[in-house]
Design a protein around this nucleic acid. Structure first.
Lengths: 184, 184
DNA sequence: TAATTTTTGTAGCGATTGCTACATTCAAAG
DNA sequence: CTTTGAATGTAGCAATCGCTACAAAAATTA
């Protein structure tokens, strides 16, 4: 395998970690090159242009998130919406997955403005998360399971948005209220 | 009143409308100056720097949103969480308020990275929205009302995030599922 | 009218942006 | 050993960034 391909993979991984920690601001090619430990000249040798680079990073982040999710909660036994919310909310607010939620919401926000390449990649990330939820819900009826999955997705994303600006105390209140509503 | 103050106000209004439509990308001083119909030189005469300008715009957007919200649903009669969610979700997804929700989520996402001046202003916008919800909830107990308000806020923000990437059909499914859960 | 302050235009600085031209080194194939 | 293509460094271009120096015009005050 050519070194170019190998480097492309490694640089993508390093920059995925960098973006997860720092977000999409200050992502000039020179900044990213420093973060990846290569020269900016090489970045444009490994990737055709900045969009190609960003796309690779986002796809990598989505893939990593999928792996973490897959290993975090087994597909069996199936769970009720309440149980899945409890485990899912705790999971996505935890130290391991929170950076991914943060980036995911940033990507969604930019997708809402049609920014490239975010708009093209956002739907895939959300679909992945939704399918992960659906696979763990006990609900038999397909249509109803999809509805419940979308609902849980909205709840968890909503908690994520709130968590950026409110304190942990209020965040717990929001979580508890959602739990109690699902528990009725 | 000095012309400077007057212009400052008018430019803020025009740029608030511009940001509501286009978001915070491509917001160079020269772009904003064009959108406001003045020269970039004048922009820095009316405002001390770009942060000052952005802060003024965001505060203006928050104020406009507060006015729209205040007039959209009266404070009496008080509503149940279900009723307020139904009216609030319909409202925030409607043509008038949706741009404000979009910008609000963009600001939250940037606040999550500590970007200035977004981090400083995000909490105020969310607090305003939460207080608006609390003022319309029938729940007597203060603590419980706050919990319900935070829950509804998470639901509505979550719907907002989802709406950037999923189709209207799925968005309706999410809304209906949330409604049904609140209705139990 | 004269003096002073507020308002505006022109022009550009130094830094950063994405990206490229060009030359050189290196490793593998003949 | 020679040739050839891949890999990398140096240097820089044209565009854009936030911001400022400078001076002229316009309005206000004396």
């Amino acid at each position: 395998m050519s070194k170019r391909i190998i480097q492309r993979e490694q640089v993508t991984s390093r920059l995925a970690a960098h973006i997860l920690e720092n977000g999409f601001e200050q992502t000039s090619l020179r900044n990213l090159a420093d973060a990846a430990g290569v020269s900016d000249r090489m970045l444009l040798y490994y990737f055709t242009n900045k969009n190609d680079l960003l796309s690779s990073i986002i796809l990598k982040i989505a893939a990593e998130m999928a792996v973490i999710l897959a290993g975090a909660i087994p597909e069996v036994p199936k769970l009720s919406p309440l149980e899945l919310f409890q485990q899912g909310a705790k999971l996505t607010m935890g130290t391991q997955l929170r950076p991914y939620m943060k980036v995911s919401i940033e990507i969604s926000a930019r997708a809402g403005r049609g920014e490239i390449p975010f708009a093209q990649l956002s739907q895939g990330m959300i679909d992945g998360f939704r399918i992960w939820i659906e696979a763990r819900l006990e609900t038999q009826d397909l249509e109803r399971r999809r509805m419940e999955a979308l609902m849980l997705l909205a709840m968890i994303d909503g908690l994520g948005v709130l968590s950026f600006a409110i304190d942990e105390d209020d965040l717990m209140k929001a979580m508890n209220a959602l739990e109690r509503t699902l528990a009725r």
